[in-house]
Amino acid sequence: MSRIGNKPVQIPAGVEVAVDGNHIAVKGSKGTLEMDFYNKLAINVEDGVLTVSRPDDERETRARHGLTRALIANMVEGVSEGFTKSLELAGVGYRVQLKGTTLELSLGYSHPVTYPAPEGITFEVPDNTHIHVKGIDKQQVGQVAAEIRSKRPPEPYKGKGIHYVGEHIRRKLGKAAK
């Protein structure tokens, strides 16, 4: 029994959900997202509530039931509120600047690292050590944040690098800890 798949998705005011065969389109104030879902599942929209149901208990259908419901819930939340991932730079001389839609990162290399914003993603730089990645697609926001973090991942000895806000970096003592 899928507990996630059986939960109904509340559709807020201002969000339109259109189901056509095995294709769903969600339109809201921040944009539009579309997805093709597993053709055995049934999606019903009634009175501002979306439900996902499955016709049988086959392994594949059960596996995709909760997944489909979670993806649709993320689409509804994305077009109404959006998603944000926050990154922080730690290290002497590590800083970031926003030039147009491109991030310019100084990460201790001999050259600045640039990262252009993909379509559907916006960057906010409140100060020179913080980055906010914003967008309506949860997967894309997480992927872009992970790619930026991979430019200089945090290292365990001094904690220098790019890390998520609130992320705990396990520290090592180094060779002085005999």
Rank of each mutant, 00 (worst) to 15 (best):
I4F: 08
I4P: 11
K7V: 15
Q10C: 02
I11G: 07
P12C: 03
V17D: 13
A18G: 00
V19H: 07
D20R: 08
G21H: 12
N22I: 01
G28L: 05
S29G: 05
E34H: 15
F37Y: 15
Y38L: 13
K40T: 08
L41P: 08
I43D: 01
V45T: 01
L50V: 00
P55R: 12
P55V: 11
E60M: 03
R62Q: 12
A63Y: 00
R64N: 15
R64K: 11
H65T: 13
G66V: 00
T68E: 03
L71D: 07
N74W: 03
N74Q: 15
E81D: 10
E81S: 13
G82C: 08
G91N: 11
G91V: 06
V92W: 09
Q97G: 14
T101I: 06
H111T: 09
H111W: 07
P116C: 13
T122E: 01
F123H: 04
E124K: 11
V125E: 06
N128P: 07
H130C: 13
V133I: 14
K134S: 06
G135C: 03
I136S: 08
I136W: 14
D137M: 05
Q140I: 10
A145V: 04
I148L: 14
I148F: 02
R149T: 02
R152C: 13
E155P: 05
P156I: 06
K158T: 04
K160C: 00
G166S: 14
E167I: 00
L173C: 09
G174L: 07
K178V: 00
